[in-house]
């Protein structure tokens, strides 16, 4: 069996003395959508931040495309092909949409106009507002800008921390459609979601985290079909 594109195995660690992650393992293959769900306080966002290097692991290792990146800083991981969209404060509010995307491409030395065109193609709604300040956009459009910003580095793995928090169901569906489109271009997706049911619908692989450790791991459809998972985590 070949190693998956992203593999974060047996992660232990936390912010202070007490560990939040107690042996969490996440893997994502090329072009796959992986979704992390679980109850509040299960360490979902922490697990993603650990993958991105925003917290020091006491144990475990993270590899991307076969390369060990456990010791790298988030900035270095961005250069290795990770894109990260934080849950909040994920745009530059007083800068225009276009400038937000430019900042996303800050580390790129080459011509990024093609990438920008692709992002605008993916999100036509924000393409019309490219000269407008991102802070003036609606919630759903801001999330699109945020995702677009992360795509500007042409990442091979895109990580989204609760992208649909606080947006209406219609906007959520739209956003999930876009995420599927992104995945089809070969980009792997790792995302944390509160809206577990809808997210698992589009997931190739789903992780149910409880107390910082994997409880169930299966394809999205299988998890949705599992009566135990449904009863405990999806509300029946």
């Amino acid at each position: 069996m070949t190693e998956p594109y992203l593999s974060a195995t047996d992660m232990h660690g936390g912010y202070g003395k007490a560990d939040i992650l107690n042996g969490c393992t996440l893997t994502v293959d090329k072009g796959q959508i992986a979704v992390i769900v679980g109850p509040n306080g299960a360490g979902k966002s922490t697990a993603m931040k650990a993958v991105f290097g925003m917290l020091n692991l006491r144990e475990g290792r993270v590899t991307l495309g076969g390369e060990d990146i456990t010791a790298l800083t988030p900035q270095e991981r961005v250069r290795k092909g990770m894109g990260f969209v934080p849950q909040t404060h994920n745009i530059f509010p007083t800068m225009t949409v276009e400038e937000n995307l430019e900042m996303g491409a800050f580390i790129r030395e080459d011509d990024f106009r093609d990438t920008m065109a692709q992002v605008y193609e993916l999100f036509p709604a924000v393409a019309d507002k490219r000269k407008q300040n991102a802070g003036e956009l609606s919630g759903g459009q801001r999330q699109q800008v945020a995702v677009g910003r992360a795509l500007m580095t042409k990442p091979s793995l895109l990580m989204l921390d609760e992208p649909t928090a606080g947006v209406s169901p219609i906007v959520m569906d739209e956003l999930f459609d876009r995420i599927i489109e992104v995945a089809r271009t070969g980009i792997s997706i790792l995302m944390v979601e509160q809206n577990a049911r809808q997210a698992l619908e589009i997931a190739d692989i789903g992780y149910v985290l409880v107390q910082g450790a994997n409880r169930y791991t299966d394809s999205g459809q299988a998890l949705l079909a599992d009566p135990e998972v449904r009863r405990t985590f999806l509300g029946g």
Binding site: P74, V78, P86, H89, I91, F92, P93, T94, M103, R149
Partner: peptide, 10 residues
């Protein structure tokens, strides 16, 4: 505008 995001952007 956003110190943390600026760091993430390199």
């Amino acid at each position: 505008d956003n110190e943390d995001l600026a760091l993430l952007s390199g």
